[in-house]
């Protein structure tokens, strides 16, 4: 499974660097001393029990959440309070949400072209063509004129993936992309994500889909209590977990 996927990474310059990062919600220490380097083309799956801070971690990367200590550097730009930097980083970093968050008042096509037209300043015609290309890619082009409310959950999530692709991001963050879906729709979304992986997209995926992690990820991270407890390549991670929390978590999730 892994053979045509492995050698796309470039070990020289990390695209995301997180150094000694901490975050608090009020007094609650949600993220503790996070260190992480993500290289171009790398695919990382983050798992862990709920409340472990994994969603918060990836939401810090595009500043949906603010970190209070340490550094996050994306594509050479450090995330600070500077709005210009935040906007530049958000253009480079795509995000796919658990609940899709499509814009319900816009058609599928408009959902996809909104970012390119208003942020990238792409001419409308070109944006439409790009949007149709990616809709084709997530196999949903025939729904372009419909509204999100008329689509199934799986279709909506595929549209959401296409929406972030339209911005031509360097990295896509997935925040539990399949956990709000009915079981029979999980596969269609995972298939799209696997085909993205085959194209060499850099991906950070918060997910409990262990099959996906095994077949696509370069590294699997296990988080608990706001810390990254264990980090390993998938075979090692699943076959020989080091930390006892990881062992417990895996035994619960695999049964």
């Amino acid at each position: 499974m892994n053979d045509n996927l492995t050698d796309t990474t470039n070990q020289d310059s990390p695209i995301i660097t997180i150094k000694d990062m901490h975050k608090w919600y009020g007094d609650f220490h949600v993220l503790k001393n996070i260190n992480l380097k993500v290289h171009k083309g790398e695919r990382i799956v983050i798992c862990g029990p709920s409340g472990s801070g994994k969603s918060t971690l990836i939401r810090c990367i595009n500043r949906l959440e603010e970190h209070q200590r340490g550094k996050i550097i994306v594509d050479g730009i450090e995330l600070t309070n500077d709005l210009k930097n935040i906007e530049r980083i958000r253009v480079e970093v795509g995000m796919v949400f658990q609940h899709f968050n499509l814009f319900p008042h816009l058609t599928i096509l408009e959902n996809l072209t909104l970012g390119p037209i208003w942020v990238r300043k792409t001419p409308k015609k070109e944006a439409d063509e790009t949007a149709m290309y990616y809709l084709e890619k997530v196999r949903i082009a025939e729904q372009a004129k419909k509204f999100p409310g008329q689509l199934s959950g799986g279709q909506q999530q595929r549209v959401a993936i296409a929406r972030s692709l339209c911005m031509k991001p360097n990295v896509i963050l997935f925040d539990e992309p399949t956990s709000a879906l009915d079981p029979e729709m999980v596969k269609e979304v995972l298939d799209v994500m696997i085909s993205l992986a085959q194209d060499g997209m850099t991906m950070l995926v918060v997910s409990h889909e262990m099959g996906f992690a095994k077949s696509v990820a370069h590294r699997v991270l296990f988080m608990d209590g706001g810390e990254i407890l264990e980090e390993n390549e998938p075979n090692e991670f699943f076959g020989n977990p080091q930390h006892e929390r990881t062992q417990l978590f895996l035994s619960q999730i695999l049964n």
Binding site: L64, R90, V91, M95, L102, F103, H105, V119
Partner: peptide, 25 residues
Amino acid sequence: RGQYEAAESIGLNYFQSMRRIILPQ
């Protein structure tokens, strides 16, 4: 809340996300 986040995450600035996403709804 997700609508605000989705608008931010595709890089829309405050006025764009209000004008295009939040206020219409």
